[in-house]
Computed example of a mutant assay.
Amino acid sequence: MLNMVGVPASHTGWTFITSHARVLAVIADNPNVRIRDIAARCRLTERAVARIISDLEQDGYLSRTREGRTNTYRVEPDKVLRHPAEAGLSVASLLSLLVRDEGERFGKPVTQ
């Protein structure tokens, strides 16, 4: 099996992070990323990534603008997570665990 640079090897069994969170983190890391690249990075099919993006858009966690053949995504950092166990936690809180320098992506200075 061909291993692309920056793409983790296959994994079996359970994981801590959902596919939705992985897709959101990849988009937060690169707002102009292609579905094909998200799929490779998250080890999902392009169809699954498109469905996840649709879910995230429908519930207001991200939006996209299309310019020609390119999508540019915008993650909504202040949107509150869905599960009652995470009541009060925002997307930015989640991404702080998954993405480096997330504050800069949302136009806010990173505090230490």
Rank of each mutant, 00 (worst) to 15 (best):
A39E: 01
V23Y: 00
R105F: 09
Q112Y: 07
S10I: 12
T12D: 15
H20D: 14
R22W: 14
D59F: 02
V26K: 05
G6C: 11
A9S: 15
V49L: 06
R43Y: 02
D59T: 07
T18G: 06
P77E: 04
V26G: 04
G60F: 00
A9K: 06
P31L: 04
P31Q: 07
K79Q: 10
T72M: 09
T15W: 00
V7A: 11
A85E: 14
E46P: 07
P31K: 12
P8I: 05
P109Y: 03
Y61S: 03
V80A: 11
V49N: 04
N3E: 14
A48G: 06
R47I: 15
L62M: 08
L98K: 07
R34V: 10
T65L: 09
E76F: 00
R51W: 05
A40H: 04
H83A: 09
P109M: 05
R34E: 15
E102S: 09
D55E: 09
S10D: 13
T65H: 04
G13R: 02
D78T: 12
I38W: 04
A85P: 01
L89G: 01
P8K: 12
T70Y: 00
E104I: 09
P77V: 13
H83S: 09
K79F: 11
R74C: 06
L89M: 13
